[in-house]
Design a binder for these strands. Sequence first.
DNA 1: AGAAGTTGCGCG
DNA 2: AAAGCGCGCAACTTCT
Length: 561
Amino acid sequence: MPTSASRILLASATGGDVVAVEIAPDGSELSRQTIAGAQVPDWVRQQEAEHSPRWIIRSASEIYRRLLAADVTLTRAHDLLLCHAILRDTDVIARPLAPSTAWLPRPPEVEEPGLFDFSPDASDDPAAVLLEQYQQQCRALDSDTTARLRLLCAAESAGGLIAEEMRAAGLPWDADEHDRILVETLGVRPAGGGMPAKMAEFAAAVRFHLGDAQLHLESHTKLLRALHRVGVNVSSTSQWELSEISHPVIAPLLGYKKLARLSSANGWAWLAEWIHDGRFRPIYIPGGVVTGRWASAGGGALQLPRLLRPAVRADARWRLIIADVAQLEPRMLAAMAADAAMARAAQGRDLYEGVVASGAVATREEAKYAVLGAMYGATTGDSGRLVPRLRTVYPRAMRLVDDAARTGENGGVVSTRLGRSSPRPDDEGAPARSESADDASREQDARRARQRARDRGRFTRNFVVQGTAAEWSLIWLAEIRHRLRLLPSARHPAAASGPFSRAAHLAFFLHDEVIVHVPEEHADAAAAAIREAAAVATRRLFGDFPIDVPLDLQITQTAEK
DNA sequence: AGAAGTTGCGCG
DNA sequence: AAAGCGCGCAACTTCT
């Protein structure tokens, strides 16, 4: 393989071997070789050291875990699976990528013994299949004269690598602290099993007030009947409705529900299943949401209750850097719409106070409801009533979301700043009525169709904002990763082994928040890197448009807030 | 018995 | 039964 290599395509061959193809700048094949499975990590490490090529791979989720397990990291990649979804659906180029079911994510594979022994592509020449797809994607990217899709695909591919790296590194988690929180909140766990003490107390109080010593509290139907028996006339057992009622059963019932939730979602069973060697390793799914947000699988990674934050704890001589953006989405909206007035309100840490200062609303609370309502499409209630006031002070921003909603209602497609487009509406549910249908059912169909259109309008309204925020976060992540890789090694390794035990690394990502785990001596440098990365993300998306995207950032030992 | 749907609640 | 977007998960009920 010549030293000029800058792009190498990796394809799985039979028997765990790998075919490596060197790609010329014009996308054509320069040379290829087959590498025996056992040699792949060393070979890849060597290529990284000598050329740091862009690796063209089917999917990081399919191959990267095995490389990381062998302590090999990749600098850059082009993830064909992730980019296929973007380039197939995008509405910002004349000829999007031809859709193909061959480029959909595979169901999670069972662990296989061989290093690269994942199911080989069903073809005599899997490398040719990948190369053909890569060339098609390059043609699509080249047709975008604005190059925003190129930026999006690069960021998305970096995200694919980061998701696997964060899983490999894990989020440092103090199981003892978690246990302390559980005991403090739920009460002591009986030795013989059964309900923890404080939960049992609440349960007993609820049963007493409902006059049923045997009542099964987890059954909504039974609980609802029991509530009706004592005159608590609610239509559901949800806490927001219960909290409106004044009755002695309400307080213990809400208390019980709170604890029951913690116990079943993040109790001792969760701790035993998900925390190993002081790390929480969820599965991140980049692009798992149509807007471009990440999804997760297993462990409820994106729903960790704030109550458990103190269990996130840096290793000895290491620090956590926790950084997030307040009100990322409305900031994105202001910049996307080039709404100078809204950008002015976004100056500084609290956008909502800025909205109050504009005179549109009286209180911060009103500002929050109005802004969220504008982005979500509220039509009724407090929020819906406040939204029109924003139209007078921020006409450009409001026009952007209102246009997105109208496009969706009319069955159209909307796109984010970088060109990720909303999926086409599916035609399911369009009723095929015979001519004999009566007026009433035709009326009902029409009503349902209007409802669907409104639902879709709220979806597309939110899509442009949520999706662009996801793009900002993705670039932020990629730029953080890039900078952290330049930091020197740790004086003291982290408690866990693996490729990230000696260097600062991303440990957690949640829509607009990151947690970085860093050797104490590099904490300040890493914090600076995170701030720089945010500034770069803003500039990449919006150029010189003056929009503030301030970070809340703290360097700590634990994630307590 | 197991699949599929519902409810409720955690996160942004 | 959230007014208003996007998710995942546990536990229950209902369907097959």
